[in-house]
Design a protein around this nucleic acid. Structure first.
Lengths: 236, 236
DNA sequence: CGCGATTTTGAGCCATGTCAATCGGAGTGG
DNA sequence: CCACTCCGATTGACATGGCTCAAAATCGCG
């Protein structure tokens, strides 16, 4: 299960994305690369155990995960998604937290030696701080999520979420301006956005009919990127 | 502006609350106490500049603040509140963040020497980790906020938020099971919960008529704590 | 071909939003 | 002391976005 991950293309993309999010210099990324080698994978549907130690950080190289809570009445709230380039960290493992982390597809991740990065001296301090910045990004997304649900209409919410996916995937080279793939059912969207599945279906139909985008079996095609952007920002 | 804060009762309560949130031993709290002395205050309505450095942490000893975003169309989303016992930290100061931190009342805070706590050796490492835990608590609340808005009805949202305030204030001795004071207008509640002001008014009327609680000029009186708890948890 | 999961569609309803008007309290100035 | 204003809370009438229920269509898969 342990091998050097430095050769894989998915790993390179994830590392580059992490470097960008953390605003690392190319040379810092280069120093980080050979240190990552513990590869871990989960099958689709698996529950992922987040690390409790703050210095155990894993970088997702491929696959989708989501963080959710199951309510006593059987409903589900999805709080956010983890994509290639994102970090699985202790942030997802609050002791008393009733939240769970689930793999949406098969997921691969490599362990980033954050502890080493933190103690290797001055240069590596930047790496450590970079990781922290990447995690802060995740936090910022939780603000956007609340804003989306509290202030936006159903149409705006769906547009906003799909645009978030596109932009995040573009950073790892997994999307273009016009299209990407997302392993999501309409139920996932509904549970993320505080809507009913049926209404999500209607909203997607509306987006389709207005020629802004189509979504079929996870394949999202953006026909009018600018219109989508405006819609997602609440400007009509 | 600089004085030893160790004598003030509000400070003692805030410190005790911090110790509880961070799960510190009494002796750790004792070591922390004499180190806090830089007092800072903001008048009601003032904008609060959060520190960018991660080791600059301020402990609120009295007053209310909130974190919000002003939307281009003039609307406002409130993401959360900071009460006595809470920490103002870099978490509230993401560089690119369009969020602001505002004092709802006059606010007093003392600077906690987190950096010292982190470097003073083994014992003080616990203090540092304790502070981190307290900040994690704030993060956990953002999950609750999203859940509230995405999955709960207007009635449940109001009940849930008021209960959050009561429980947090009780930890600092500023509330009893049955009553507390909150410097909030119905507009604040609305902007927090993703509701219209008018509907908040209707919901409060409903809570009043059903004898669960009353709220007048910020004075909240809980008449049926158990009914409120059930309502806030979505059990009807 | 049949079955489960997902998506789509229609009909009707209800929670919540919008608009407009009123009311009460706290200042404020005359 | 009164008149005026401003702000927050309240109320009513009405509109509507999104939910529920029920049913059909579609797709993937064994």
């Amino acid at each position: 299960m342990s091998r050097t991950a430095g050769s894989c293309q998915a790993f390179e993309r994830a590392l580059a994305s992490l470097g960008a999010a953390a605003r690392l210099q190319a040379q810092d990324v280069d120093r980080l690369r050979p240190l990552c080698h513990q590869v871990e994978t989960w099958p689709a549907g698996a529950m992922v155990e987040a690390p409790h130690r703050r210095d155990r950080v894993r970088l997702i190289t491929s696959g989708w995960m989501y963080e959710a809570r199951l309510l006593p009445d059987g409903r589900r709230q999805i709080f956010g998604y983890l994509l290639p380039g994102d970090l699985i960290c202790s942030r997802h493992a609050y002791r008393a937290s009733p939240n769970i982390l689930l793999a949406l597809t098969r997921v691969e991740a490599v362990e980033v030696p954050a502890a080493k990065a933190a103690t290797f001296g001055e240069r590596d301090r930047f790496v450590w701080e970079g990781l922290t910045r990447s995690i802060e990004r995740q936090e910022e997304r939780s603000y956007e999520a609340l804003l989306r649900v509290a202030k936006y209409s159903a149409l705006e919410r769906v547009a906003n979420l799909l645009l978030e996916f596109r932009d995040r995937l573009m950073r790892v080279g997994l999307a273009t301006q016009e299209s990407f793939w997302a392993p999501l059912t309409q139920e996932h969207l509904a549970d993320t956005l505080g809507l009913s599945v049926i209404h999500v279906s209607r909203v997607l139909k509306q987006l389709r009919n207005s020629g802004i985008l189509t979504m079929a079996f996870g394949e999202v095609t953006v026909l009018q990127p600018e219109a989508l952007r405006r819609l997602a920002a609440g400007e009509h």
